[in-house]
Design a protein around this nucleic acid. Structure first.
Lengths: 201, 201, 201, 201
DNA sequence: CATGAATGAGTCTTCATTCAT
DNA sequence: TATGAATGAAGACTCATTCAT
């Protein structure tokens, strides 16, 4: 009766396929991944994929939405631990970079695959990214309201700039497979520059 | 004399194909572009492509190298107009964003296609990007040497952060096709934050 | 008592599937019909189909045999109402054309699907069609014996010719979905021509 | 310079594929024929098929149109040899049955495949068949105008009846692979019945 | 150098059939 | 008997690349 783990077969497979797809996409890239590879990785038959997903694109979309939700929820939770805008900036930076290094597969896919998506994919990507970026926009606005951040900072630009700064570090780690610059140091430098850059005085 | 136009026929076609490829890649994406489409756009026969390029990947590499060289040269020229590190930061920001909006096709390809490149492509991309990023690293180091920028700024992180901040704006314009936030304003905001963020005092 | 309705559950389902299959085949054609569609139409599970039929071909065969038996029985009953060969020719014509227009679904399948049957299907089709055609051959022979039809009429040819003449009208109705030429008029014209054509003098 | 035979490569292949398709369709049926089988039979690569035909359906349509045109032209030529409606009826019967036995492959396809065609195929089939059937309708009308055939014969019904009568014989030969009833005898019986059936007096 | 017809390997997707429950 | 999730074989079609002219 402890049916907490009573996920149906279906949910199991759905998750298994998404997980397998993430792995395969990260390794080979979307266009070079075969559906049959994903099936093999998920230990299901090729046809089974199509019981859970409309087509190959749909798998990518699902991977994206699943991971993006986790990302947003985790970030919200972390940001909830502080009331200080300055502290929140540091948390955002660390959390984002940390996520990238801890979930290399997703980072790889997010950095690489989602950006070359076809037109209709863009819609999915855009909206979820917007949600994520706005978590940071709120911090900036909050800082402005509290009078710690300069009024003339445009949040629309600032959120993209800060996110871009972090993300480029992630891209560096992902693409070069380098381990130079620790998460801690990178997060500190970037948030320090930003905070000093936007603070009143 | 008149040697300006003394490019051989071959060079003509080579360029024509690269130009056509840039256009097609920008519109459809690398994997959804057909070699025959590029050939048509370049007004050559399909087979002719293979007299100038080893394969489809090779076309993308050539497009990349051609555009990247132009990008680097233009940036160098612009940066040469000033001696002041602070001014140079502003120039870099404006020049990069301006390039993105003025060469939409290339921006589209750079933002999107190059990042989903296969393993061997990464090498090409990495090296050229490094050259470009280092143009900015020099500025930071120069600023530190002149004592205007803080010593504890890590140039390896700073160059990526600044470039990433700019590039994310470009990605926004490319992906969302939005025209919000002018080049001037975006460049000013981002360089202002950065400059204030890294300056001594 | 009340044994009329004493069909077992099984027989119910068997019939339900055949009926559903007829409907689906008529609408989509055999090769474009999915077993799952038939199951849905019959309101049974996909797997249930295979408790009653060996495979998809077997369903078509069953549909065919079921309908063909009905067709033959009905025709026999109608022909039994007369002793006159000439009258029987008219009855056959009217009854056949009437059946086609009243059982459009079956007509569609009979006209179209059964003729593209695979080798082994042909056997089933051939034998049952032979039974049906022979109902007409009897009429002709009877007419010859009674001296009203010419002796030199080859019944093997005549039965096919007459049936073909009628059937082509049916095909026209089915394929063109036209309503031109009423059943009555068509039956009259075709039987008139045939009767005059085969009568002594 | 005797370039009569100077058909281009293309025309050669186009014809070769059609011929091969006719053979394969006749043997296996449309749905059981693989494009690769047709390619093999035509001695071209699979992909080559798609240089000449949009898809598998398109091959069937082309086969149909090619053969149907030949059929109509041949029939016209034969009918042109006589001025007598009665004689023309006999010619039509003989020519049609003869065609069926001489071009078994086409007969097989025409009898079987074309009738199970999908909706859009029906259009093609209907129009060409109409042309063919009308060749016979003209004969009947001509007979009526000359006063040899009864005025009250409906040509719309008569043409279908006569064609259907002949075609059913063809179907018999095709489906049963029987050789009973010669072309001559069948043609004679069927046209005799019809002529006697529709003649004035 | 240039052409473009021909190639054929490669992959997504469908769907009849099975089988554990 | 009944279910329907799972299977996996099969095939139409695409498109990068070649090569005879």
């Amino acid at each position: 009766m402890k049916n907490n783990t009573n996920t149906t077969r279906s949910e199991d497979k759905h998750q298994r396929i998404i997980k397998a797809a993430l792995k395969v996409f990260a390794k080979k890239g979307f266009y070079n991944s075969k559906v049959s590879e994903i099936a093999k990785e998920a230990e299901v038959a090729d046809g089974t994929i199509y019981l859970y997903f409309k087509n190959k694109d749909d798998i990518l979309i699902s991977v994206f939405e699943t991971e993006m939700k986790t990302m947003i929820n985790n970030m919200k939770k972390e940001l909830g631990t502080s009331q200080d805008p300055i502290e929140k900036v540091r948390i955002f930076a660390f959390q984002h970079l940390n996520m990238i290094t801890e979930n290399q597969e997703w980072a790889e896919v997010a950095q690489v695959e989602l950006r070359q998506s076809t037109k209709f994919m863009r819609e999915y990507v855009k909206d979820h990214y917007a949600d994520y970026l706005n978590l940071f926009a709120y911090i900036v606005r909050e800082g402005q309201e509290k009078g710690v951040f300069k009024e003339d900072i445009n949040t629309g630009i600032a959120k993209r700039a800060f996110f871009g700064a972090l993300d480029e570090m992630g891209r560096y780690w992902v693409l070069s497979r380098s381990k130079r610059y620790s998460v801690e140091e990178s997060a500190k430098q970037i948030s320090d520059i930003f905070i000093k850059g936007v603070m009143n005085q």
